[in-house]
């Protein structure tokens, strides 16, 4: 359960989040959409504690965020661009994370197998391709079996096969009752993965509801069309 109330954040003159109110029940999967610079990533980073809000409160699994860190045990985060210490090996990175959290990565081997990373984890991270690094990020996000997943443009660098495997994995996580937040520009992908969408524009939530309702309201067959229409509508 994630509750966001009256969240405000500015970077200098730039008002990135304006009075965000949002409640995401446990087990919901939700897509966060909006044009570039609309505040999607900032919203996720604020929930992760990477960005400190100017005002407003965020509550995640009954913890009110206030510089505390324990709540992040429940969150797996996969960043947009995955870059890691260059000289480290992926196995070392996983070991390090396990030691850091003092927690075994229960899905570690399973994920490595699923993403076919066996040969890659024994190389320094700097020689890995972008896609493989992305997969390492996915392993890191999911290996501790967190109850909440934040996935920021997760499939951007993946080849079709990996992308397919990844989506399968997400569907499994959904079935296991995880709360999942995905940002993506690929609307068809979101349609496959989530039931709900949040549409953010210029730091404000313009729409929050199921994809079905959104399509109905906008008389569209596909999410892409509906979002595009909404963006136009607002701009007009």
């Amino acid at each position: 359960m994630i509750t966001i109330q009256q969240l405000q954040k500015s970077f200098g003159d730039h008002h990135v989040l304006r009075n965000i109110d949002l409640e995401i029940p446990t087990g919901q999967s939700i897509g966060i959409v909006g044009p570039n610079g609309s505040g999607k990533t900032t919203l996720i980073k604020t929930m992760l504690g990477l960005v400190k809000p100017d005002s407003g409160t965020i509550t995640i699994n009954n913890t009110v965020l206030n510089g505390n860190h324990i709540y992040r045990r429940d969150i797996g985060y996969m960043p947009q661009q995955a870059r890691y210490p260059e000289n480290m090996y992926a196995t070392e990175l996983f070991d390090f994370m396990e030691n850091l959290r003092d927690q075994p990565g229960e899905f570690r081997n399973q994920l490595i197998e699923e993403f076919n990373l066996y040969s890659e984890v024994e190389k320094p991270l700097r020689v890995l391709s972008g896609g493989n690094r992305q997969k390492v990020g996915a392993v890191l996000a999911m290996m501790f079996n967190p109850s909440i997943l934040f996935l920021d443009e997760p499939t951007a660098g993946l080849d079709p096969r990996s992308s397919y495997i990844f989506k399968e994995r997400i569907r499994n996580e959904k079935r296991a009752g995880k709360t999942i937040l995905i940002t993506s520009h690929i609307m068809s992908e979101l349609e496959q993965l989530v039931e709900h969408v949040v549409f953010i524009l210029e730091g404000k939530i313009q729409y929050y509801g199921t994809i079905g309702d959104l399509l109905k309201d906008n008389r569209q067959d596909h999410l892409e069309g509906a979002i595009a229409q909404m963006m136009e509508g607002v701009e007009l």
């Binding site: 504690g49 990477l50 860190h69 992040r72 985060y77 960043p79 870059r83 210490p85 850091l100 959290r101």
Partner: peptide, 16 residues
């Protein structure tokens, strides 16, 4: 050089 690494660590349950 380690901005991403920093951010990775910051998303972990670790005190700043």
């Amino acid at each position: 050089q380690s901005r991403d690494y920093l951010e990775l660590l910051l998303t972990q349950p670790v005190n700043r």
